[in-house]
């Protein structure tokens, strides 16, 4: 079922990139949120997709069962999920101020000294 995950990753990236490039604040933020979903899925898939073998050792066992999923990408993605939340919040607040100052949701009107 790698194909299903790859399909999901591809669609999420394509949609989020298009949103990012649309040039309005709301779509930019939406695209950012989607982008982190896509990235997490991609990173997760890079660990290999194993069904029914969580990286947990059973009570009394010395290690997870043979063929269990790779725990390292999971640990990476876990912190990435939480950080993505904080970054999204930061971007939202940043956009809040920029939008308020420029009184428009056109991001080309923000910040730039030539814009």
């Amino acid at each position: 079922m790698s194909l299903a995950v790859a399909l999901a990753v591809g669609v999420v990236f394509a949609v989020s990139l298009r949103l990012l490039l649309q040039g309005t604040l709301w779509h930019l933020l939406l695209g950012l949120a989607l982008l982190s979903h896509g990235t997490h899925l991609l990173l997760f898939a890079a660990g290999g997709l194993v069904a029914g073998g969580p990286p947990l050792a059973l009570e009394g066992a010395l290690a997870p069962a043979a063929g269990a999923a790779d725990p390292l990408p999971q640990a990476l993605v876990l912190t990435a999920i939480v950080i993505a939340f904080a970054v999204l919040a930061f971007a939202l607040v940043l956009g809040l101020g920029a939008g308020r100052d420029a009184k428009t949701d056109d991001i080309d009107a923000y910040g730039g000294d030539r814009g």
């Binding site: 790859a6 591809g10 999420v12 990236f13």
Partner: peptide, 11 residues
């Protein structure tokens, strides 16, 4: 193109 690339990368 970005979506296609990332899908290929995931695969």
């Amino acid at each position: 193109l970005g979506g296609l690339t990332m899908a290929a990368l995931a695969l």
